[in-house]
Design a protein around this nucleic acid. Structure first.
Lengths: 204, 204
DNA sequence: TTCGTAACAGACCGTTTGGTCTGGTTTTAA
DNA sequence: TTAAAACCAGACCAAACGGTCTGTTACGAA
C-alpha cells in the first residue's frame, strides 16, 4: 500500500466544514476549499467523487460528532435520580458548553445544507433526520417521567418539547449571527432551561 | 413619466423571494429568477443594480411585512388587561397563524441571507437586526409586567426571553425542513406558549 | 530492484454565472 | 406632434464554476 492519504482527506474535510458553515454550500467553491487546505484538484477528486459527495461525507462525520455529544450529555446526568432534575441538568449541560461550542463553530452544518434545496431528498437528508430523531427520542425519554411527576398536571407533548432543544440550538445559531454575538446561544439555552425548570417543578 | 414598471418589479421580487427562501441565495441564479418571472435581463437590471441589490430590496420589503405582523400581533392582544394573559395571548396569536405562515413560505428570508457571509456587514444586516430588535423590545415590554406579577419570583431576563420567540421561529423553520413537515412550526410555538404559561402563572 | 498502485499535481474543458450594451417601444409633458 | 425619459428585450462577454485528464511521485509487496 502506498502513502497514507487520510491526513489530506481530514484536512480537506476540516477546511470545507469551516468554510461552508461560514459562507454556505454554494457560496464555497472547490477552488477555495482546495486552496485553503493547501491541496490540489487531483487530491480532492481522489478523495471525493463530487462536491455533493463532499457534502455527504461532511454531514456523516458531523452526525457522528453530534451523536457523540448527545451520548456525552446523557452520561453526564445518568446518575441523577430525580426525573425533573435530570431533565433540567441535561439542558444545563449544553448551556454550560455553549460558549465553547460557539468558539468552535459559527453555525450548524445541518442548517447550512438544508438551506440548499438541491441536497434535499438525498442520503444527506436521511442522515440529518436520523440524528435529530436520536436527540428527540433520548430527550423525550428523560422528559416523560419528569412530566408525569410534575406538581401540576402538564399537557405538554414530550416529543415536541424534546424537539424544542433542537429548535433552540438552530434558532440560537441564527440569533447569534443576526447580532454577531456568540454569547446569545448560551442565553437562549438558559431561557429554555429556566422555562423547563418552571414547567417541571412549579406547583399549580 | 413613461409606462409603469412597478408590476414587473413586484413580479421579480415575488419570484426571487420564493426561489431564494426555497433554494438559497447563491443557489438561485438570475437567469432562473428572470425566466420564472417571465421577464428579461434588461428588465431586471433596470430595476436592480445587481444581485446583492435585489437581496437588499427583498429584505427591506420582508422587514416591512415582518414589522406589520408584529404590530398586528400587538393590536390583537392590546385589550387584554392581565399582563400574563396578554403576553401568552401574544404568542398564541402567532401559534394560531403558524399553519398559514408555513403554507405561504418554506423558510425565513433572514436565515437565508444570513447563511451567506458575503452579504454580512452590509445594509442588509442592519435591516434584519432592526426588525429583530423591534420584536425583542415589543415583546419584552409585554413580558416585564407579567414577570413582575408572577406568583413566584422569576429571574428570567426579559429580553432574552423575548428573543426566544425569534429563536423559536427560526429554529422552527429548520425543524420543519429537517422532517419536511410544516406542522412542526405550530407545535414549536405551542411548546413555547405552554412553557411561558407555566412560567408566568404557576406558583412556587 | 522492480513493479503496481494509491496519492497526488496541475493544465485543461464545457457550462453557467453575474453583468453590460445596444437598440427598440411605450408613455406623458410640453 | 414631438422630445425625452422610463421601460424592456436579448445578444453578448469575461470570469468563475465543477469536473476531467494526463502525468508524476511515493511506498509497500514480490
Amino acid at each position: 500500500m502506498p502513502r497514507d492519504g487520510t491526513a489530506t482527506r481530514e484536512r480537506i474535510l476540516d477546511v470545507a466544514e469551516r468554510l461552508m458553515t461560514d459562507q454556505g454550500y454554494n457560496a464555497t467553491s472547490l477552488d477555495q476549499v482546495i486552496a485553503a487546505s493547501d491541496s490540489s484538484k487531483g487530491a480532492f477528486f481522489h478523495h471525493f467523487r463530487s462536491k455533493s459527495d463532499l457534502a455527504l461525507q461532511l454531514v456523516e462525520r458531523y452526525v457522528r460528532a453530534d451523536l457523540a455529544h448527545l451520548e456525552e450529555g446523557l452520561a453526564a446526568v445518568a446518575d441523577i435520580d430525580d426525573p425533573a432534575a435530570r431533565a433540567v441538568a441535561f439542558v444545563r449541560h449544553f448551556e454550560d458548553g455553549a460558549d465553547e461550542l460557539m468558539a468552535a463553530q459559527s453555525g450548524c452544518l445541518y442548517a447550512t445544507v438544508l438551506a440548499e434545496r438541491e441536497l434535499v431528498g438525498t442520503e444527506i437528508d436521511a442522515q440529518i433526520a436520523k440524528a435529530t430523531v436520536a436527540w428527540r427520542d433520548a430527550f423525550a425519554d428523560l422528559l416523560r417521567p419528569a412530566l408525569a411527576a410534575a406538581p401540576r398536571h402538564v399537557v405538554v407533548d414530550a416529543e415536541h418539547l424534546a424537539d424544542h432543544l433542537y429548535t433552540t440550538f438552530e434558532g440560537g445559531f441564527i440569533l447569534c449571527r443576526t447580532f454577531t454575538d456568540p454569547s446569545l446561544m448560551r442565553a437562549q439555552l438558559q431561557v429554555f432551561r429556566q422555562l423547563l425548570e418552571s414547567l417541571l417543578t412549579s406547583g399549580p
